[in-house]
Simulated scan of single mutants.
Amino acid sequence: MLTMTYEYKLQPTPEQIDIIEQTLDVCRSVWNFSLRQRKDWCASRKSPVNACSLNCEYIISADAPFPNYHRQAKELTDAKKQYPQLKTVHSQVLQQTLRTLDRAWDDMRARGFGFPRFKNKYRLRSFVFPQLGKDPIRNDALKLPKLGWVKWRLSRPIPEGFQVKQARVVRKASGYFVALSLQLDVDVPLPPNPR
Rank of each mutant, 00 (worst) to 15 (best):
43 A>L: 11
140 D>M: 04
162 F>R: 03
19 I>S: 05
117 R>I: 13
189 P>I: 07
101 L>T: 00
109 R>K: 11
76 L>R: 13
84 P>T: 10
86 L>M: 06
100 T>A: 07
112 G>I: 01
113 F>V: 10
168 R>M: 05
117 R>L: 07
165 K>I: 04
175 G>W: 02
136 P>F: 00
128 V>E: 12
135 D>A: 00
74 K>I: 11
122 Y>G: 14
64 A>K: 12
51 A>V: 04
168 R>D: 05
18 D>C: 02
129 F>M: 13
33 F>Q: 14
73 A>N: 08
146 K>R: 07
38 R>I: 09
188 V>N: 02
159 P>C: 10
59 I>S: 10
57 E>M: 06
57 E>Y: 09
190 L>Y: 09
91 S>L: 06
118 F>T: 06
35 L>N: 01
183 Q>F: 08
6 Y>E: 11
9 K>I: 07
6 Y>P: 08
134 K>N: 14
92 Q>W: 04
5 T>K: 03
119 K>S: 15
177 F>S: 00
92 Q>S: 02
172 K>C: 04
28 R>Y: 11
129 F>D: 13
170 V>K: 09
126 S>M: 08
127 F>C: 10
31 W>S: 02
45 R>C: 13
43 A>Q: 09
129 F>Y: 15
136 P>K: 03
72 Q>H: 04
90 H>R: 05
53 S>K: 02
63 D>K: 01
116 P>A: 08
156 R>L: 08
184 L>M: 14
176 Y>N: 02
99 R>Y: 01
151 K>C: 12
179 A>G: 13
77 T>Y: 07
108 M>Y: 15
101 L>S: 05
153 R>F: 14
106 D>P: 04
85 Q>E: 12
149 W>M: 08
185 D>P: 00
128 V>Q: 09
116 P>K: 08
180 L>T: 01
112 G>L: 03
10 L>D: 15
132 L>Q: 08
128 V>D: 10
4 M>R: 13
